[in-house]
């Protein structure tokens, strides 16, 4: 078989192997997304659904100040929870990577993470509610006379969001830090860097791609969170996810739900592209170490 024929055959086989998944995702992921884009430009049907008439009404409705307020709140809650989550997850990933018992720590992170998310949210309700664990315990100790309002507010939403998404941050951080050459830290220390200096100037720049992955995998799902604000949030903690679901199930305004979904999709896609380009640049750097080390002095 000559090489040209072989290449042609290889291409055919590659397509044969990959086509089933490619087609599946095209039909059941990409086509539905395209339908959403289309629907966002159509007129709302009377009982759900759409009427085939081009209009920008959905986008005009989106500019409603009430929705804008929820949008900004969602952005704020997602940003704050992400920052806290990453700050907590970084030392965890580091300690896990340095540990002799990596598998044990991984199991300890993964077990709660795999436990049904509704059970975990329910557990928080049991802890925070007015007759919940914390209030009953404090009352029994005589610290408080009346229940503290711990649930159905913004604080509860942020706490539970951090709880739900911290494993999403710890796991990629652990994986990246595990690949990091810790001798670099030692070298930095030997050359006179203080401990924080060695962490911030040597470790952090080297695990950038892991941090970005962690940010994406916490920020995007929190931005689209639905269950947590619904079950532990109050009137002041409605998020975009809740608006979208209400538009589908209650108001039956499918074009508006589609328009909101489109906005979230665009935001997420930008995040993913950012992540992919930064991972790619890091990989390129790893593949050509000599080149970079020369110019870079072995760090960052």
């Amino acid at each position: 078989m000559n090489s040209h024929m072989q290449e042609k055959r290889g291409r055919r086989l590659g397509i044969t192997y990959s086509a089933p998944m490619g087609l599946w995702l095209t039909f059941f992921f990409l086509v539905p997304l395209c339908i959403i884009i289309l629907y966002s430009f159509l007129k709302k049907g009377l009982y759900g659904g759409v009427e085939w008439e081009f209009t920008l009404t959905a986008y005009r409705q989106m500019l409603n100040p009430n929705f804008m307020r929820v949008f900004l709140r969602t952005l704020w809650v997602a940003a704050l929870s992400t920052v806290i989550t990453i700050t907590l997850a970084l030392p965890c990933g580091y300690a896990m990577a340095r540990s002799r018992h990596q598998v044990m720590w991984l199991a300890l992170v993964i077990i709660p993470f795999w436990t049904n998310s509704l059970i975990r949210i329910y557990a928080w309700i049991a802890i925070l509610s007015s007759e919940g664990f914390v209030n009953e315990a404090l009352k029994a100790l005589g610290v408080i006379g009346e229940s503290l309002p711990l649930i159905y507010n913004q604080g509860a939403v942020i706490t539970v969001l951090i709880y739900m998404y911290i494993p999403f941050a710890i796991l990629p951080l652990f994986t990246t830090i595990d690949k990091f050459d810790f001798q670099l830290l030692e070298a930095a220390r030997d050359l006179g860097a203080s401990k924080p200096e060695s962490i911030f100037k040597v470790l952090i720049p080297n695990i950038r791609s892991g941090i970005i992955t962690a940010v994406i995998f916490t920020f995007i799902p929190i931005f689209g969170a639905y269950t947590v604000p619904l079950l532990v949030g109050g009137k002041d903690s409605y998020m975009i996810g809740n608006i979208i679901v209400d538009q589908v199930t209650k108001t039956r305004n499918w074009p508006l739900a589609s328009a909101f979904s489109l906005v979230i999709t665009v935001v997420s896609t930008i995040g993913v592209i950012w992540m992919m380009t930064s991972t790619a640049s890091e990989r390129a750097r790893l593949k050509a170490p000599a080149q970079v080390v020369d110019a870079n002095g072995g760090i960052s």
Partner: peptide, 15 residues
């Protein structure tokens, strides 16, 4: 993998 679940759920429902 990265799109929020709400989006995937709604797009599938509509589909």
């Amino acid at each position: 993998m990265v799109l929020p679940e709400v989006i995937i759920g709604i797009s599938m429902l509509i589909f």
